[in-house]
Structure formats: structure tokens, C-alpha cells
Nucleic acid binder design. Structure first.
Lengths: 197, 197, 197, 197
DNA sequence: TATGAATGAGTCTTCATTCAT
DNA sequence: AATGAATGAAGACTCATTCAT
């Protein structure tokens, strides 16, 4: 119970302040617990952050895998999977923004995240993108998507999704997410160029 | 001279460590100067960071404006402007990643950047995106680009460019940038959907 | 307990060095504690100083009020109250000298004391002097003291007391204080001029 | 010429900020000169301060000596000498307040003033007080002043003068100074006690 | 298990002083 | 003589982490 309180508080504080500006003191105050308690459940600030990310993304990753393996026409599957992404990212936009920043840090091992830790985070993103690749590849094989570098295309799609969210272009309502998913899918699939003929 | 040494060192350290983990001590060590010297030229760490951003982006912004006002077919102008973006962002990827993170309201007013300061940074991005909008709008008027929400489309394009760079998908060579620009323009303009007829 | 150790050390260091030259490091060393501990109990150096003043003067102020309200002949009450002042000021001469210096608007708002803080300190002195005024006024009403501007006279008396202490003219022994009190009272009440008649 | 500009600026800044909060930068800015120039004329901040004190008090000390050796009735000589004090101290109140504070510092030799330096300052005050003693002693010998500890009495008188000034009870006009001198002389000579008979 | 007082390494920033021009 | 860029020692304050209760 205390553990969950701490994780919830950590979610709020990390989201608001970023990894470095978030202080254990603030998390503790919000979690209504003692500072020592945090260190009973988590070995340090970094591992608290990691645990938070892991637990928050678990359900999303499961849903992503399921969506990818549905039997469905490629183009509509693309839109569906975009929606799954948007649902998760809009709900966790702030925390994930923080995560994406911290992942970079070629910084020293002392501050910021450990190199090893960072690799774990990166793996998560790679997994997500590989799902998109798989779907695109499927589409190509079925002739619904034109031949292209699926890796780059998947990356591009992922980027647009993430940026759309991070730029605050999507609301949190189901409708808003639906509309954004359609809009992204439309541009991604058909481009912005005028079609002649 | 010392001023430039400091700015160069700051570029390296901020890029590697991010704004918070970068220490003045490290910048000073790399710049091969005394700590006091930094404070002779810059009022504090934040203003050093800001100056860095401003000086690094000046040439880029000028070039962007010029490119936007060239008389040229819309579609090829899109590709050209994408190239301008890519050239700048690949050369400054790490620092801009840091900037984009700090710009978010994260962190308290004390640490991190001032609210007022952040607004200045945001203005830079707004300007870049407005250039894209202008070009797209031009394309629509000339019938080269299909009607769409230019603001959203510009945002999307900007996002793809930035993300492409930040994901490390582009090398620093002119060839690599050319290829990436073409690839982004291609997907952005024509989408990934197979064209039938 | 640590709190008291810190206050005791702060008393010594502030008394010896003055507000500005006193360093937290030195206080910490003397208090035999860690630097962070100081900041657990006091928000900053200034508030540590203020707390010190407040706690040290509390007992004195209480005693002053009591002495002022005793039923006693005015002239002997004047001597008594002078003694109360001397007892306190001789015991805290160094720290109070520091306080009186800092109270002046000297120094910028950043360093030194806040304007607001200074006002609090000044209030303490105003209170002390008003007690003297009250006693002198009483004396005038009872015909024991000749009519004069009580505010100025109280100020003058206060000044003599404080200066006597600050000039180091009084020892710490009860006898020394008694003698000084009598001497001050004598000159203040009867002047130094020879009386003819 | 530069030398005098620096001394004038130093007077202003030391008076306003106190010894420690005054910065060489500020003095230099006010003196409209270069920082190095200060160190051409004065060996360091402390010696600049000392020089300032010395030059400012020279005329006063001369006048004091003259006044003391005038052939004049003791009581009126007391009032005259009080006036000399008041004239000087009201004109230099802020700087002398600063001086009196710095003189104390039992502080370390590093910051604040040197022990040796402090002794020089103290000597100045001792001299002033000894003048008062001399006048009082003269008065006693001539029967105008009742027998008392002249050292203590001189100290007391000096204290009242200084405090009167420091408390801001005296204006800078000749009239204000005259009035204050008479008032101090009156209380000092005749006391505040009612005279019966 | 829960707590929070204690800690000190690490950070930014200031400022008197020097010295080459 | 005049200058001001360069310097670094020193100081206030923060915060993740520990450990005794």
C-alpha cells in the first residue's frame, strides 16, 4: 500500500519536475510517508523511476502486442495501433517526455541514469517500433502498403505519434484521440500531396 | 577569445550532460579558463545556455527565412526547407534535444529555466514552424498540395524532421542529409499507402 | 539537541565574527554536526541569526516588563531597570553589537538582512526604550524627575547603558554590574555639574 | 585626482554598504576609473578604508585639540567640545558607524581588518575620549564639576554624543547641532533628577 | 516495517587581487 | 599612470542516502 502511494506520488512529481528537479522530499510529502520508507521499497531514486516506467508501460505493451497480432486489414490495423499508442502516450505524456530526455544522457554514470539502465529503457522503445515495423511489413506483403524501408517508415510514424502528443495536439478524450489517430493515419498513409488522377 | 572558448566548452558539456547535469566546473575545465571568467561574460548558467542557443541558431534562422522566400515550385521548396532543417538539427542535435526538454514547464522556477526565458525559446520554435506553414499554404494556393490544416501539417512535418534527427537516423554527411530529406519529403508528400491507378 | 548545539555555536561565531564574516562552515565545525543539519532546523543563515536573537532576548524582555511594573519609588526603579539592562547586555554584548550593526540599512537586500527582518529587530529596541520612557514618565508624574522630553531622555539613557557595555566598561560580575548601574543612574539622575546650595 | 575620486567613491560606498558589503567594483564604478587604478594607490581594500578614515578625521582631531586648549570656563568648554564632536559625527555618521563595527571584530585576520589595523583605529577613539577627560579634569580642579571618575564620565559623555548621532536624533543644520549640543550638555551636567532647593 | 534526523559531497556564484598591455 | 580581463579561493545552500529507533 505504501509502495503504491509512493509510486503514485513519484508519477506526479517526476511528471511535473522531470527526473533531476524531482526531489525525494517532495515525493515523500505527496505520498504521505517517511523518507526511509522509500528506501525500503526502492534501492534509490533511479530505480524508483525505472520501476515507475516499467509498471506504467506493462499494460500498454501487452495491448500493443495483442493489437499487432489481430487478423485485420493492414490499413485499419495501422490506424488501430496508432490509437493504442495515442491512448497510452496522452495518458502518460509528461512522464514519457521525461523518460525520453533522460534516456539520452551520455552523461556521467554518477548523476542521471546508469548506462545499463538507459539501455533497458531504449529496449522498450525499440520493441514498440518493431511492432510498427511488423505491421507495415505485413501491409507490404499484402500489397496494401507500397514498398519502402519499413524501419525508417516505422520510425517516422512513431515520431509523428510521439510528437503529436508531446506538442499537446491531442486531448485526453476518446473522441479527441480517435480524431488524432485518423488524422495521423491519413497523412501517414496518403501524404499531403494533391493526387492527380 | 575566452568568451568563445567558454561557449564552445558549454556547447560540448550541455550537449553531453543536459542543462542540469552540466556543471560550470566542467565547462571551465574544458574551456581551460578560470571559473570567474565565465561570470565575467555571462550573468549565470542559464544566460550562458541561452546565449549559446541564440548564437547557434542565428545563421540557421536566417537561412530558413531565405529558403522560404525563394521563388521555386512548392514541392521542391518543401524538400529544400527540410534539408535546411536537417542540416542544422543534425549538427546541433544533442544541444537542441536538451533545449526542447528544458523548454517544457518542467522544473521549478528556481532551478532550470525562468518562465520568461522559456517563452523566448518557444518563440524560436514557433517561428520555424510558421515558416513551414507558409510554404505549405503557398503549395495549397498553387494547387500542389491538397487542402489540409496547414498548422497541423506543419507541426507534423516539423515533428518528423526533429524526431528523425533525435532518433539518430541521419548521419552528418551531406549525402546522408540529402537522402533523409528526400525520404522525409517523399513520405510526407505522398504517404506510404500504395497508389492504385 | 543538535538544534541547541547549533544555536550555541552560532552564538559564539556570530559574536566573534559578526554576521557576514561568520561562516556556516565554522558554526558547523563548532557545533560538531553536519552542514545539512543546520538547514534542517533553520531555513538559512539569516533565520538562524534571527532565531538566536529571539531566543536570547526572550527572558530579558520578560524580566524588563516585570521590573517596569513593580511598585517602587521612581528613582530606585530607574536604577533597578538599568541593572536589568546591564545584566543582559553584558552577557550578550558581542552578539548585540553585531545585531545593532546589521540593523542599520547597511548592505544590500541580498546579503545581510532583509528589510522586513530588520524591522522585527528594530521593534525589539523600540520596546526596550518604551519601557524606559514609561518609567521616566511615572517619575515625572510623581515629581521625582524634572519635566523633560521623556522620549529623548529614554533614548539617552539607553544609549549610555549600551555604550557603557559596548565600550567594555563593565565586568561580568554582579558587583561590577551593580557599581556600573549606580554610576550610570547617578550621572543620569544628578548630572556631573557641582551642586551649589 | 584619480586618488581623490576613489576616496570619495569609497566614502559613499563604505557608508552605504558597510565594509564587507562594499565591493571594489562598486567603488570603481562610482569613481569612474579602472579597477587596477585602485590598487595603484592603495595596497588593498582594507588600507583604502583606513586611509579614508585617517584623512576624514584629521581636521576633526586638530579642531578637537584646539578646542580643548582654549582658555574658557569649563562648563561652556564642555558644550563647545560637544559641538565639535557633533559637527564631525553628524557629517560622517554612516562611515563612523561602519568603522566602530569593524573595530570590534575579534575575527580572523583574513577577512575583516587586521588586528594591528584595528589597534590604530582604537587609538583614535582613545584620543578623543582623553580630550574629554582632560576637560572634565580641568573642570573639577576649577570646582565647576563635582568630583567623579573622569574616565567613566568622559566615556559616558562620548557615548551619549555618539549614540545621539547614530540614533539619528540630530539633523545636519548648524541650528540642529547647536540645540543637540545644549541638550546633551544640559543633561550631562545637571542630570534629569528634580532639584529640590 | 516505518520513520525522519543527520550527513557531506557537490553546485552555483561572488569578489578581492593580479598582471600584461 | 591607467586599465580591465582573468583568476580561484571561499561561501551559502541542496538533496540523495543512511541508520538508529
Amino acid at each position: 500500500m505504501k509502495r503504491q502511494q509512493i509510486l503514485d506520488a513519484a508519477y506526479t512529481v517526476f511528471s511535473r519536475k522531470g527526473y533531476h528537479c524531482a526531489t525525494v522530499d517532495e515525493i515523500v510529502a505527496l505520498a504521505d510517508t517517511g523518507k526511509g520508507t522509500v528506501y525500503n521499497y526502492f534501492v534509490n531514486k533511479e530505480q524508483l523511476f525505472y520501476t515507475l516506467i516499467k509498471e506504467r508501460s506493462a499494460a500498454f505493451e501487452a495491448k500493443l502486442d495483442i493489437t499487432a497480432s489481430l487478423a485485420e486489414p493492414p490499413l485499419s490495423k495501422v490506424e488501430k495501433v496508432i490509437k493504442v499508442f495515442l491512448e497510452f502516450y496522452t495518458a502518460n505524456a509528461d512522464l514519457w517526455r521525461v523518460l525520453m530526455h533522460e534516456m539520452r544522457g551520455l552523461g556521467n554514470e554518477e548523476k542521471g541514469l546508469t548506462q545499463a539502465q538507459r539501455e533497458k529503457y531504449r529496449e522498450k522503445f525499440r520493441h514498440s517500433i518493431s511492432i510498427l515495423e511488423k505491421i507495415l511489413q505485413e501491409g507490404i506483403e499484402q500489397g496494401a502498403i507500397r514498398k519502402c524501408d519499413v524501419h525508417k517508415a516505422a520510425h517516422g510514424l512513431f515520431s509523428v505519434i510521439v510528437m503529436t502528443v508531446f506538442q499537446g495536439c491531442v486531448g485526453q478524450t476518446a473522441d479527441s484521440i480517435d480524431a488524432a489517430a485518423r488524422s495521423i493515419a491519413d497523412i501517414f498513409l496518403y501524404g499531403v500531396a494533391a493526387r492527380h488522377g
